[in-house]
Nucleic acid binder design. Sequence first.
DNA 1: GTGAAAGCGCTAACAA
DNA 2: TTGTTAGCGCTTTCAC
Lengths: 344, 344
Amino acid sequence: MPTKKRVTHRDVARLAGVSTAVVSYVINDGPRATAAATRRRVLEAIEALSYHPSASARGLRLQQTRTIGFISFDHYPHDAFFAPWNAAMLTALTEALLREHHYILPYPQGIGDDLTGLNELLRGGRVDGVIVRLAQEPPLTDALLEAIARAGVPAVCIERAGAERFGFSSVTYDDEVAAYEATMHLIKLGHRRIAHVQGDLRQVAARDRFLGYRRALTEAGLAVDGDLLQGGSWLPADAARGMRQLLELSAPPSAVFTASDYLALSIVEVLREQGRRIPDDVAVIGFDDVPLSRVTVPALSTVRIPFDDLGLKAADLMLRITQGHAGEPIAETVRLELIPRGTT
Amino acid sequence: MPTKKRVTHRDVARLAGVSTAVVSYVINDGPRATAAATRRRVLEAIEALSYHPSASARGLRLQQTRTIGFISFDHYPHDAFFAPWNAAMLTALTEALLREHHYILPYPQGIGDDLTGLNELLRGGRVDGVIVRLAQEPPLTDALLEAIARAGVPAVCIERAGAERFGFSSVTYDDEVAAYEATMHLIKLGHRRIAHVQGDLRQVAARDRFLGYRRALTEAGLAVDGDLLQGGSWLPADAARGMRQLLELSAPPSAVFTASDYLALSIVEVLREQGRRIPDDVAVIGFDDVPLSRVTVPALSTVRIPFDDLGLKAADLMLRITQGHAGEPIAETVRLELIPRGTT
DNA sequence: GTGAAAGCGCTAACAA
DNA sequence: TTGTTAGCGCTTTCAC
């Protein structure tokens, strides 16, 4: 509720001595041309009154708001802002969208949460589209994507597919391949007993990272030893517990591939605590490349997920939609890169 | 650009056999009463059509959007989402606002950045108010607050004051007192040579934390030794360098009070590297209580800033304004609490 | 207790 | 090249 009276295009028109239509033509550079002199007068009037068009009025007229929702759909809704991946995506998204005069509206939505709030957002015409970070795959994502599709709101999915069924574009990456490469890297370094500390297996990321690990071992002719499998949650404490168990094995691993950096970092902590040298006694590779991993000593070897790039690409896809150059849905992919640092 | 045709109150009215006015009365529970039977019919029609009122149309009519801007005004705009304090505030704000069916629109604005984008946001009627995290005090905040005030947009400032001049409410805390108490705590533990590793002195937080430190020493009759002052930036690497210098002193400190947790954590790293025992050889106290500080080993003693509380209180103040129970601007304060953990 | 209609600020089709 | 005006979907005053 601004205290001052709003400046409208009528005020501008009056001051510039033109009709309101011309004000619109000048502001939007069309759809009709205006004489240079008129144009200048209007611009001056706009400047003098510091006029800015009303987003609501425009939204009502054009049926678009230049606002994009960001839905972080995860088992861990508290991470919506805290997790570095969400922060990185929000940073990249916000910048890319702002450059095109679009705004971002974050909406945390936990997996399993009630969808009424989301429906209000989607059907209230508040957003021109939504960018959804999917931590999961179908069927857990079905209700969400269905709600979006039924509301007729365009969406771009990040991380997981599950977009095709609804005709949404997506930006994804391949966990399995990256996990395979990371494990292969350890094998090439000569490791034969390689443990894997898993993430929350409810999430496809955790499962795929395990599958990549397993495929690498199998291809290298190494046995997939159940004793070398630990974890099963994203909680560092669980990983630490798992690592302690691994160290008590009669034949402990010489390397550990983990499903996330935070798990890896807690494992490094355990190793240090127990006086093992890294990477001489035990090598460690994480997954994500969170900011912290660069600054620990030794710095963590990891698989880099380019979250900023994911955000950027998602923003581009979304802008293409809101600006009408939509075409067929596009499924983009980004490559994950192994970053060997101090722990391998 | 939703692909489906929008359902409007006309559709609802038609289906329920009433006028559009009644639909509005039912939705808004006023301003006029409706017969129970009519009301029920309308509700059923709304349900059947899954009708949701258009935010733009409402916004245009009511001149309010139920959207609140969050401006993070800092020398470090990249932190807008990454810094745990911003994440914590955004989390708390979003939850509190969503509960009242308000949305949050984050807008990163670096100190010194051009204000045109912000002006567009403020004057476009896109937000009913803004919540501003001020990392600084006047005169650096003047241009920003002035722009907000001139746009006639209500604001609530978090962390720093500088709000009074413009009639804004604020939620702040006292760095100086907290720093005083933290330093006093070290003194009471028997420390006599207490170093201070400073933050970026362009920011009032860094300066106040230093002042509190100094006051404690002075009151305890201890000299404020220039040799024991290090740092001057928020970069952990600078703190590490400072700590190494402190350790080379002929009479090194037995305790260090730092201006932030990240600085403290890097100092802990240096101490560990050099084989000093914590807290026996050197005690460390940080400031902020970032999530990481709870999980390191040993856990960091620190001053807790209740960012979630700051966010919550700011949201409440803002809602009071948008809902019309404004009254005089309110200057709330939250207490900072010393959290002794493993490093003291 | 309800209906008709004005008007919020804008864009764009229709006129000139 | 520009002016006039309908209408986007909603709330609320005026009339009944």
